[in-house]
Amino acid sequence: FRLLGDLSHVIAIIILLLKIWKTRSCAGISGKSQILFATVFATRYLDLLTTFVSIYNTLMKWMFLTTSFATIYLIYFKFRATYDKNHDTFRIEFLIIPSLILALLINHEFTVFEVLWTYSIYLESVAILPQLFMVSKTGEAESITSHYLFALGCYRGLYILNWIYRYVTEDFHDLIAIVAGIVQTVLYCDFFYLYVTKVLKGKKLQLPA
């Protein structure tokens, strides 16, 4: 489940990068969500400096870090002219500040690394909101953008199955990650519904008026 989750996460990022690169445009993509994701990776993968788990683990962490910053570069620099700034108006301080406060209050251990890890988990769970807000504001999304959102939504959903599996087989569970993972997946539910009922039937993702 974890491997499938990771793969679906990687596929989401590749879809997004390819979309921007091939169409030479980042229209419909929320730069703010991408900034939040880069923040998530940067604060979570600080453990690259302290803990070695496996080559797979290290490579994946580096990949998420580099691709998320590459995406930001494409949106805010290379294809800046195509960035839909007027529709990307979600106030991200409403996500950043509460996540930080929550991480300071509810964590496993009050240390810099641990609080930042917790912050990354909380922030990740809501990081997609600017993107979903943008889709709801414009009332539609290109098919490729919906494939990206679908793959990204599947990733945390698959992680929930991984957590159930780990709880059963290793008796390991991390309540912070589980609750945040559920919140994150629930946020995608509405989108999943539209994806299955519209995009998979060859229609464009268009919100009911």
């Binding site: 803990t51 788990v53 683990n57 496993h108 890890w117």
Partner: peptide, 10 residues
């Protein structure tokens, strides 16, 4: 041990 487990996930 708890934190070792955690670094494992992405």
């Amino acid at each position: 041990n708890h934190s070792r487990n955690k670094h494992d996930e992405l």
